[in-house]
Computed example of a mutant assay.
Amino acid sequence: MRLIGLAGWSGAGKTTLLQRVIPCLTGQGISVSTLKHAHHGFDLDQPGKDSHTHREAGAHQVLVASARRWALMTELRGAPEPPLAELLRRLDPVDLVIIEGFKRDAHPKIEVHRAGNGKPWLHPEDPRILAVASDVAPPAGAPPHLRLDDIEAIARAMLRHAERF
Rank of each mutant, 00 (worst) to 15 (best):
L44W: 11
K36L: 02
A106C: 05
A59V: 00
L91K: 09
I99Q: 08
T74Q: 10
H107L: 13
T26I: 06
L122C: 01
R20A: 14
E81Y: 03
S33I: 03
V21M: 07
Q19Y: 09
L96T: 02
P80W: 05
K36G: 04
L91I: 01
D105V: 02
H52L: 08
L88M: 14
I99M: 08
I110S: 01
P108A: 05
L122D: 04
H39R: 09
W70L: 05
L25Y: 10
G58C: 06
T16V: 14
G13I: 02
K119L: 01
R89T: 11
L87V: 03
D92A: 15
R69F: 00
A106G: 00
H52D: 11
L88I: 14
G27T: 09
G58Q: 07
G58P: 03
V21L: 15
V62C: 09
S33G: 04
D50F: 05
K49P: 11
L84G: 11
E56A: 15
K119R: 15
R68V: 09
H37V: 08
W121V: 04
H54W: 08
K119Q: 15
G58F: 06
A71K: 00
T15I: 05
F102S: 08
C24M: 13
L76G: 06
K103R: 15
R69S: 08
E86R: 13
P80E: 10
T16K: 04
A57P: 00
H37I: 08
Q61C: 06
S33D: 02
Q61I: 03
K103N: 06
K119C: 06
R90D: 01
D43R: 14
R90Q: 14
I110P: 00
L18G: 05
K109F: 00
W70E: 01
M73C: 02
Q19W: 05
K109Q: 03
I98S: 05
T26A: 10
A115Y: 08
A65K: 10
G58I: 04
V94C: 14
F42R: 15
S51L: 12
H39I: 01
G29N: 11
E111L: 07
D50G: 04
V62I: 10
P83Q: 13
R69Q: 11
S66Y: 11
R68T: 12
P23Q: 12
R69A: 12
Q28V: 01
P83N: 12
A59S: 13
I110K: 02
P82Q: 12
H40F: 06
